[in-house]
Simulated scan of single mutants.
Amino acid sequence: MQMPSHQSLACACGQVRLAITCRPIASVECCCDSCRRAGTQLQSMPGAPQVLGPQGQTHFVMQRKDRVRIEAGQSLLHAFRLSSRGGSRRVLAGCCNTPLFLEFSGGHWLSLYGLLWPASERPAVEMRTMVSDLPDPSALPDDVPNLKTRSLRFYARLMKAWIAMGFRSPRIDVAGDAHG
Results as ranks from 00 to 15, higher is better:
2 Q>W: 15
2 Q>A: 09
5 S>F: 07
6 H>S: 02
6 H>Y: 11
10 A>T: 01
12 A>S: 13
12 A>T: 07
15 Q>I: 14
19 A>I: 12
22 C>M: 14
26 A>I: 12
27 S>A: 08
30 C>D: 00
32 C>V: 07
33 D>F: 15
34 S>N: 04
34 S>T: 11
39 G>T: 01
39 G>C: 00
40 T>I: 04
45 M>C: 05
47 G>F: 04
48 A>F: 15
50 Q>H: 03
55 Q>V: 09
56 G>F: 01
58 T>D: 03
59 H>R: 08
61 V>R: 02
62 M>R: 00
63 Q>G: 05
68 V>H: 06
75 S>K: 14
77 L>G: 03
77 L>F: 00
78 H>I: 13
80 F>Y: 01
81 R>C: 11
83 S>D: 10
84 S>C: 15
92 L>K: 13
98 T>N: 04
103 E>Q: 10
105 S>F: 02
108 H>Q: 01
110 L>Q: 02
114 G>M: 07
115 L>R: 04
117 W>A: 00
118 P>L: 12
124 A>S: 08
124 A>D: 08
129 T>F: 15
132 S>Q: 06
132 S>P: 07
132 S>L: 14
138 S>N: 08
140 L>A: 01
140 L>D: 04
141 P>F: 08
144 V>Y: 05
145 P>Y: 04
145 P>M: 12
147 L>A: 03
152 L>S: 10
158 L>Q: 05
160 K>L: 15
161 A>L: 07
163 I>L: 10
168 R>E: 08
170 P>W: 04
174 V>P: 07
176 G>Y: 01
177 D>E: 02
